[in-house]
């Protein structure tokens, strides 16, 4: 009986001491504040005299061949950004005669190829040449978030089937350049 009592007293002492050690005159509590930002890309606003590269008259009127000095002012995609690692891709379609839609007569062409370039985003510009067998440089990766302007240019116009062909007359040749900013995984 005495042993049992002693055992019980010991338990009481332990039970009473525990709260004393657990608390003091100062208490602190933490809680986390969390949030997230999704990976975003925005293409910015196209500037530079509208959204059309106008290269003017395509041919040398003395010979009927495609001019070798065709050019158009660059366009600017202002305020573009990606909030994470990203890729920039440039794609382009040939300039095609819009009214003369049939097969051109022998010696003539209705297709103009060119090279589209998107620079300012990556160290190596993204370049796409219409009509090329492959365009390995058309997609470039940037490892960090970035905001800035993308300069889009067109150059190196050529007759699709060869420089020996002349262009068919048409009031409108149209192609399209597409620049895509995307989050890279």
């Amino acid at each position: 009986m005495i042993k049992q009592l002693g055992y019980g007293l010991a338990l009481c002492a332990v039970a009473a001491a525990a709260p004393v050690f657990a608390q003091s005159d100062t208490d602190a509590k933490n809680f986390a504040v969390i949030g997230n930002v999704p990976a975003l890309c925005s293409g910015g606003i196209l500037t530079g005299a509208g959204s059309t590269f106008d290269v003017g008259v395509l041919i040398d009127t003395a010979t009927g061949f495609l001019r070798t000095d065709l050019a158009a002012p660059d366009k600017l995609l202002a305020g573009s950004f990606c909030s994470a690692r990203s890729t920039i891709a440039v794609d382009a379609t040939p300039m095609l005669a819009q009214n003369f839609t049939g097969t051109p007569p022998t010696g003539f062409s209705r297709t103009v190829n060119y090279t589209a370039t998107a620079s300012g985003w990556t160290a190596t510009p993204a370049v796409f040449t219409v009509g090329a067998a492959s365009n390995p440089a058309s997609v470039q990766t940037r490892p960090t978030a970035f905001t800035g302007d993308v300069t889009v240019g067109v150059s190196s116009f050529t007759t699709a089937e060869g420089a020996a062909l002349r262009m068919v007359a048409d009031t409108s040749y149209v192609g399209t350049v597409t620049v895509t900013l995307a989050v890279a995984n």
Partner: peptide
Amino acid sequence: ALLVAGSYSGLVTVTLGP
């Protein structure tokens, strides 16, 4: 500024004492 993509975390510690 533009926010970099990712998970964000902070911490608040409240202390009550003398």
